[in-house]
C-alpha cells in the first residue's frame, strides 16, 4: 500500500521536473527574443520576432501553471518562473545563448524549432492529457516558427557574401549546444516509459534531415559535430543565465510577495 503511494509520489516529482524544464526552455528563449523588440532589421521582422516570443511565453505559462498543479504546493506560474535560484533553472543551454547578430538569433531559433516541431507533434499523443492539450496548440505554433526561420536561413545563406559568412559563424558557434536537445536523462526516461514523455533521442534523425535540407538550399553546411556541451538539465549553465535572471526577476526580488 505505502509502496504504491511512494511510486505515485515519485512519478509526480518526475512529472513536475519534466514539465518545469520544458517551461524553463520556453521562458528563457522568449526572454531572449523579447530583447529584440524594436531592434530588428526591419519593422516586419520586429513584429515576427515579438510574435514568436509571445507564442513561447504563452506556452511557458501553460507549462508553469501545470507544473505548479502537479507539484501541489500551491506555487503559481509566477512563483515558479521568477522565484527560483540560478541552479534550479533547467533550461537547455542553447536557449540562454546571447542574441548575437541576427544570424545567431535565426540559427538558434531554427535549431530549436526544428527540434520542437516533431517534439510537440509526438507529445500530442501523450498519456498525460494536459501535456497533450498544450502540445496540440504548441505544435501549430512551432510549425510557423520553423517555416519563418527556415526562410531566413535560406535568405541569409544564399543572400550576400557577408550574410553567408555570418551564418557560417553562427552555425559554428551554436552547433555545440545541439547535442543536449536529444539527451535522455533519468527523468526523460521515466516519462517516456510511462507514456507521458517523448523520446528525444529518437528525434535526432528527423532534426538532422530538416536542418540539412534547409541548409542545403541556403548553400550552407551543418558543421561537423564535435564536443557537445550539456548541463542545462542539471542546472549547470553558461554565465549568461545569471544576467537573464537578474532582469527577469528584478521586480519580484525587489518587491517580494506583491501582486502586480
Amino acid at each position: 500500500m505505502s509502496g504504491t503511494c511512494e511510486t505515485i509520489m515519485a512519478s509526480n516529482q518526475t512529472l513536475f521536473s519534466y514539465v518545469l524544464r520544458l517551461a524553463d526552455d520556453h521562458l528563457i528563449l522568449s526572454q531572449r527574443l523579447g530583447e529584440w523588440c524594436g531592434e530588428a532589421p526591419t519593422l516586419e521582422e520586429d513584429l515576427a520576432l515579438a510574435n514568436i516570443a509571445l507564442d513561447l511565453i504563452g506556452q511557458a505559462r501553460a507549462l508553469y501553471a501545470y507544473a505548479g498543479q502537479v507539484e501541489g504546493k500551491g506555487r503559481n506560474e509566477d512563483q515558479l518562473a521568477f522565484m527560483r535560484y540560478e541552479r534550479d533553472y533547467q533550461n537547455l543551454l542553447i536557449t540562454e545563448q546571447p542574441n548575437g547578430d541576427f544570424a545567431h538569433t535565426i540559427v538558434r531559433q531554427f535549431f530549436i524549432s526544428a527540434y520542437m516541431d516533431p517534439f510537440w507533434r509526438r507529445m500530442e499523443s501523450s498519456k498525460d492529457e494536459m501535456l497533450a492539450a498544450i502540445a496540440a496548440k504548441a505544435s501549430k505554433e512551432v510549425t510557423y516558427h520553423l517555416r519563418h526561420t527556415s526562410e531566413w536561413v535560406i535568405r541569409l545563406g544564399d543572400g550576400t557574401r557577408e550574410s553567408h559568412e555570418r551564418m557560417v559563424e553562427a552555425l559554428d558557434d551554436l552547433m555545440m549546444f545541439t547535442g543536449e536537445l536529444f539527451e535522455m536523462d533519468a527523468v526523460a526516461q521515466e516519462m517516456l516509459q510511462s507514456g507521458v514523455g517523448v523520446d528525444a533521442s529518437d528525434l535526432k534523425a528527423e532534426w538532422q534531415h530538416t536542418v540539412q535540407t534547409i541548409l542545403q538550399e541556403a548553400t550552407l553546411e551543418l558543421p561537423k559535430a564535435g564536443h557537445m556541451q550539456t548541463g542545462g538539465r542539471t542546472g549547470r549553465h553558461s554565465e549568461h543565465l545569471g544576467h537573464i535572471l537578474s532582469e527577469l526577476q528584478y521586480m519580484q526580488r525587489s518587491f517580494p510577495g506583491l501582486t502586480w
Binding site: P41, R155, G159, T160, E162
Partner: peptide
C-alpha cells in the same frame, strides 16, 4: 542593413 541587403540579393 546587411540583413536587408541579403534579403534583397536572395
Amino acid at each position: 542593413a546587411w540583413v536587408r541587403e541579403a534579403a534583397m540579393a536572395h
